[in-house]
Simulated assay, not measured.
Amino acid sequence: MYSKWRYKRHFQKHVEENYKNRINKPVEIDFDENSVNAKDFTSESKINGTELKELIETKDHFFIKLTTDLSLIVPKHSIENQTEFKKRVTELGAEYVDELNWEWK
């Protein structure tokens, strides 16, 4: 029980310290025919559709996992049409993974 609390606190502090300038900053994601374009306050990225590995859906988020095992985390509340979003990402080549019952243990 203590370990769970300790690890969770450790990683929360790590993220807050190392990513404090990136948390709660808006990011714009657009889809082209063959790529995903991401734009934030410091940079722009273009990701080829062939680099998308999985689209993982949880209760509150979508995770777009890349072949490099990095992930784009997209909160569901920020997407107007979730069905269209899933369709668009899977059309680019990502495999859909349903993890709606996943919970932190």
Results as ranks from 00 to 15, higher is better:
residue 19 Y to P: 04
residue 53 K to M: 10
residue 53 K to C: 02
residue 82 Q to K: 15
residue 40 D to Y: 03
residue 89 V to P: 01
residue 73 I to N: 08
residue 16 E to T: 07
residue 78 S to K: 13
residue 8 K to I: 11
residue 75 P to G: 05
residue 35 S to P: 01
residue 57 E to M: 07
residue 81 N to C: 07
residue 69 D to C: 03
residue 79 I to V: 15
residue 66 L to S: 05
residue 50 T to C: 03
residue 45 S to L: 13
residue 17 E to Y: 07
residue 51 E to K: 15
residue 75 P to M: 10
residue 56 I to F: 03
residue 7 Y to N: 13
residue 60 D to W: 00
residue 97 V to L: 08
residue 14 H to M: 09
residue 69 D to H: 11
residue 50 T to D: 14
residue 11 F to A: 01
residue 77 H to W: 08
residue 20 K to Q: 12
residue 79 I to L: 11
residue 70 L to E: 14
residue 80 E to T: 14
residue 52 L to T: 07
residue 95 E to N: 13
residue 79 I to E: 03
residue 94 A to M: 05
residue 45 S to Q: 13
residue 25 K to Y: 02
residue 85 F to I: 13
residue 104 W to R: 09
residue 93 G to D: 02
residue 11 F to T: 05
residue 63 F to V: 04
residue 69 D to T: 14
residue 90 T to A: 03
residue 22 R to T: 06
residue 95 E to F: 03
residue 64 I to N: 00
residue 14 H to Q: 06
residue 18 N to S: 09
residue 91 E to G: 01
residue 61 H to E: 08
residue 12 Q to T: 10
residue 11 F to G: 00
residue 87 K to P: 02
residue 87 K to I: 05
residue 39 K to L: 10
residue 82 Q to N: 11
residue 56 I to K: 11
residue 55 L to P: 04
residue 78 S to G: 06
residue 67 T to P: 00
residue 33 E to L: 11
residue 26 P to K: 13
residue 48 N to T: 04
residue 59 K to V: 00
residue 3 S to A: 12
residue 101 N to I: 01
residue 57 E to F: 02
residue 94 A to C: 07
residue 85 F to K: 06
